Simulated scan of single mutants.
Amino acid sequence: MSLQVTGNHEVSPCDDVLAELADRVQGRRLCVLTGAGISTDSGIPDYRDESGAWKRPQPMTHQTYMASEWSRRRYWARSLVGYRLLAGAVPGTAHRDLAELERRGHLAGIITQNVDRLHQKAGTRQVIDLHGRADLVRCMQCNLLLKRNALHEHLATLNPDWVGMEAEVAPDGDADLEEVDFSSFRLAECPRCSSGILKPDVVFFGDNVSRPRLDRAMGMLARADALLVIGSSLMVFSGYRFARHAARQAMPIFCFNRGRTRADELFTFKHDRIDVGLATLLAVMPPSD
């Protein structure tokens, strides 16, 4: 059994394992839930190892960001270095494969825990950014939305000595600047109210997904016949809740992810290769009439 993947290469999966997936998935409309593992091929680091443990210190929480000016200085100084990779990332094969499955009519849509917008760049139309968008910044007082690139240009003008710094890039536009004094870093003011805290329009750890966004995501899942989890350990409840809900509805749950997840006991089928799993779907799910 040889399956053509989007691109110029082939994978030769195990017949028995993927024949089982092919048999289970045919005729089903999928809701896809994606996590950081789908974007690592685009050069964006992920948070957890194959056991589901943190690879690095836990990211800044919403409460810390809002309460501490020093923490905000640290965040934006590191972001001036790390966000360049996130902003310049391009969709990988998996993003393009999912866009093709949507074009063929087999997806109810994608719920992504990522903030990189790579699904949209790949051409997928029905995407819910569960944890928000890293390319936008919101004033927490007057609710003004700004383009993050424009804010970074302003921050670079305010802090020219920080622009040329080099550091190892971390997940979601962060960078590892250690043993650095952030006290001199100048923060930008909101251009409308001048007093509000500017924060990336993403759900930080310790914050909650908004009810309207959660309701839209649950509605997307309700329009599907099965849930497909790709590249997520589901250790964070905001993603795990969809697997738990699908299981309660007796909905099949497929997973393409390397290593342990929080929902392993709920899966109908699991494979550790995203590329091979998506190649199987493309092979057995032709364009709808």
Score class of each variant (00 low, 15 high):
residue 4 Q to R: 15
residue 5 V to Q: 02
residue 6 T to H: 11
residue 8 N to E: 09
residue 9 H to D: 14
residue 10 E to S: 15
residue 11 V to M: 12
residue 15 D to G: 08
residue 16 D to L: 14
residue 17 V to Q: 14
residue 20 E to R: 13
residue 22 A to G: 13
residue 24 R to A: 11
residue 25 V to F: 09
residue 27 G to K: 02
residue 30 L to H: 00
residue 31 C to L: 05
residue 32 V to F: 08
residue 34 T to Q: 03
residue 36 A to Y: 11
residue 39 S to T: 08
residue 42 S to A: 06
residue 46 D to A: 03
residue 47 Y to C: 00
residue 51 S to Q: 14
residue 54 W to M: 02
residue 56 R to T: 10
residue 61 T to K: 00
residue 61 T to S: 13
residue 62 H to S: 03
residue 62 H to G: 03
residue 63 Q to V: 05
residue 63 Q to G: 10
residue 67 A to S: 14
residue 70 W to S: 13
residue 71 S to L: 07
residue 71 S to E: 13
residue 77 A to L: 07
residue 79 S to T: 14
residue 79 S to A: 15
residue 81 V to E: 04
residue 82 G to L: 08
residue 84 R to W: 01
residue 87 A to M: 11
residue 89 A to Y: 05
residue 89 A to S: 11
residue 90 V to Y: 05
residue 92 G to C: 02
residue 94 A to K: 03
residue 94 A to T: 03
residue 100 E to R: 14
residue 102 E to F: 08
residue 103 R to H: 14
residue 109 G to W: 13
residue 113 Q to N: 03
residue 113 Q to T: 07
residue 116 D to C: 02
residue 117 R to C: 09
residue 118 L to C: 01
residue 120 Q to E: 10
residue 123 G to I: 05
residue 124 T to W: 12
residue 130 L to A: 06
residue 130 L to N: 07
residue 131 H to P: 08
residue 134 A to G: 15
residue 138 R to W: 02
residue 142 C to W: 09
residue 145 L to F: 04
residue 148 R to D: 00
residue 149 N to G: 11
residue 150 A to G: 10
residue 154 H to V: 15
residue 154 H to E: 14
residue 155 L to A: 04
residue 156 A to C: 09
residue 158 L to R: 06
residue 160 P to V: 09
residue 165 M to C: 09
residue 168 E to Y: 06
residue 169 V to C: 05
residue 172 D to C: 08
residue 177 L to P: 12
residue 177 L to Y: 07
residue 179 E to N: 15
residue 183 S to C: 05
residue 190 C to W: 09
residue 195 S to K: 11
residue 196 G to A: 09
residue 196 G to F: 00
residue 199 K to D: 03
residue 201 D to V: 02
residue 203 V to F: 01
residue 208 N to Q: 15
residue 210 S to W: 05
residue 210 S to L: 12
residue 211 R to H: 08
residue 215 D to S: 12
residue 219 G to S: 11
residue 222 A to F: 06
residue 226 A to T: 05
residue 227 L to S: 05
residue 227 L to V: 04
residue 227 L to I: 07
residue 230 I to K: 09
residue 231 G to T: 11
residue 235 M to R: 15
residue 235 M to F: 10
residue 244 R to V: 13
residue 247 A to P: 04
residue 251 M to Y: 12
residue 253 I to V: 06
residue 262 R to C: 07
residue 269 F to L: 07
residue 272 D to H: 15
residue 275 D to K: 10
residue 280 T to P: 01
residue 283 A to W: 07
residue 286 P to F: 10
residue 287 P to T: 14
